[in-house]
Amino acid sequence: MKPERDPVTGRLTTGHEWNGLTELDTPVPKPVYFFLIVFLLFCVGYWLLMPAWPLGTTYTKGLLHQDERASVTARVKAAAEQRASWTSMIEVDHAATVLEDAALMARVRETGRTLFADNCAMCHGMEARGGPGFPSLVSGTPLWGATTDALFQTIMVGINSDHPDSRTSQMPAFGRDGILDATQIDAVVAYVRSLSQPIAPTDRIAKGRELFAANCAACHGEGGNGNSEIGVPDLTDTRWIYGGDSASIRQSIWRGRQGHMPSWDGRLQLWQRRVLALYLVDLRRHAP
């Protein structure tokens, strides 16, 4: 086929033809060359300034001697130094002093919120109210104590964690391990429920009280008030980690409980763990 003139553009075709399909012989538009050259020049400049081309075992370092790792290390260091104006006070000062310092507590609230949301909220909830299997941190007494120091320690070592100084708390599996039989457990369940609920006394509850004194009081205390020295929950209030209905209490006694909280030593820096402890104390103060 001979080149033909296209009536719309006035251009000739190339003379190639495929099943009626043709091509115009239009020259490459000038902007294509222009931008190719401009972009190429930019790239050559960039290659001269930055690390760019491999040279066997090394590479061209670039005139700016830029190094990604060095620059990010420097920026992290500078940011830490800037932050140190207040984080050093958090690390050194007594908790009581910090709690009285309004300006410092404003920072604790601001930073604690995101630290808590990024690290703690997946178990304890955004509002720190807990959920099934995870205790509320704003109501009642936390298992291992409510003071800043106690909270700080728990955050650092965790509970039943792999930290060498981990807090440990094991409730035995009274049913599974054959310490109590099903009838006895039912009696203890009835008694435990009567501690926090107005239930008329029955023989079973009386029987449960005896069994409780013999098997549970060593940890939970005579009245079931718990002991935060050894991480034992109060059974007389209406706050339950694993549920306060009969079935849940029976399950706890049957299988035992070995709740786990990870250690944040090494995962969060000292000042971050202290901010979290202070944040929780503050949260508890303002809790409704």
């Binding site: 296209d6 719309v8 553009t9 075709t13 190339t14 190639h16 099943n19 009626g20 399909l21 043709t22 091509e23 115009l24 012989d25 239009t26 020259p27 490459v28 538009p29 294509v32």
Partner: peptide, 17 residues
């Protein structure tokens, strides 16, 4: 596209580049 439009390709040279 060119078959449906019934038009020749705008530029063979641009296609190559």
């Amino acid at each position: 596209l060119p078959v449906r439009a019934g038009r020749p390709i705008y530029s063979y040279r641009l296609s190559i580049i």
